[in-house]
């Protein structure tokens, strides 16, 4: 088994060899480490993508808007990713962002996962029949974790910053809180008099 350190180093070097600048290659190395650590097929996708761009170069995104369409070719997922990561605090205000015609979209995922951590919001991403929930770069949930089929192109990718809302109702919370109260001990008059701060006035 390859260590994550080896995955990082080899991905970085291969990406440099494929034409990315060292600084971008460093991002790719870290991302492949993350994807593989999350159990997603990063190396498989990167390998195929780097082979592909040798013959068919992809398009570098210039600026990220609410809707992003490449002019001539497919978008490069790496450049979309670095631009997204670098601009994530600004992009957060757009709430929903769409990319069209992106090569090997899985390679975009770790950039968004890191963006989720930076902005402190979960991000949901959808393309083809794949849904992912990115949780502050700590975990990635997917609806088809066992599907190892490589998506070589996403016609449309939807990226949504999720507000930090509870996943439960107030009623559910109150019920749970009430149960938790059963661990509390009711104070006696005597203990109230002896407790911390007892007998003092705070009007000083």
């Amino acid at each position: 088994m390859q260590s994550f350190s080896e995955i990082d180093t080899t991905s970085k070097r291969a990406s440099k060899a494929a034409g990315f600048a060292w600084g971008v290659a460093e991002e790719i190395g870290k991302n492949m480490r993350n994807l593989e650590m999350f159990g997603l097929p990063g190396i498989k996708n990167l390998n195929l993508y780097l082979q592909k761009i040798k013959k068919t170069p992809t398009e570098k995104i210039k600026k990220i808007e609410k809707k992003n369409k490449p002019k001539l070719k497919e978008f490069c997922p790496i450049y979309c990713g670095t631009a997204f990561l670098d601009n994530c605090k600004k992009l957060e205000t757009l709430k929903l962002i769409k990319f069209f015609n992106v090569s090997y979209p899985l390679l975009l995922l770790p950039f968004l996962s890191r963006a989720s951590d930076i902005v402190g919001k979960k991000i949901s991403i959808k393309y083809e029949k794949n849904n992912f929930l990115l949780n502050f770069d700590k975990t990635i949930f997917s609806n088809n974790i066992n599907n190892v089929k490589v998506v070589s192109k996403a016609k449309e990718i939807s990226i949504k910053f999720l507000e930090n809302n509870n996943s439960f109702s107030l009623k559910e919370w109150k019920e749970l809180y009430k149960l938790s109260e059963e661990t509390f001990v009711k104070e006696t008059d005597s203990s109230k008099k002896k407790g911390a701060g007892a007998g003092l006035t705070d009007n000083d």
Partner: peptide, 18 residues
Amino acid sequence: ETIADFLLNNDEVRHVVR
């Protein structure tokens, strides 16, 4: 300009910006 905008056109120095 933000660093994000600067980097859009200056990939080759990204490693030293870091």
